[in-house]
């Protein structure tokens, strides 16, 4: 109990950030028309590719002769990058189709 309270005290700002971000996440998309569910999911999916940042940091910190870390980190970068680039591109393709409606 003591240690938990101490943890809360020393990470107060972090905890505020967590709580407010959760509220923000709930609020920011609370009213979405059904039409946009798929693109929104896809766009959110692209944002979850932010995990790639971790892979970049991992590689930058690795020793140049630590091939295991470098290979794993690069694998992480590749996987994350597919998620990010593919996610945004596929979302854009979906949304592009909504745009065309005014023409016809």
């Amino acid at each position: 109990m003591e240690s938990i309270l101490q943890f809360i005290d020393s990470n107060l700002i972090m905890i505020y950030l967590l709580v407010f971000t959760i509220i923000l996440g709930f609020e920011v998309i609370s009213k979405v028309p059904t039409v946009l569910h798929t693109p929104l999911m896809s766009g959110a999916n692209a944002i979850s590719g932010v995990v790639i940042i971790g892979a970049i940091i991992l590689i930058r910190n690795a020793a140049p002769d630590d091939l295991l870390t470098l290979s794993l980190g690069t694998l992480g970068v590749i996987l994350g990058m597919i998620n990010v680039v593919g996610g945004y591109a596929v979302t854009d393709r979906m949304l592009e189709m909504f745009k065309k409606k005014k023409k016809s």
Binding site: I22, G25, S48
Partner: peptide
Amino acid sequence: GGILVGAA
């Protein structure tokens, strides 16, 4: 970013 996507 992660928490935002998690909540959304």
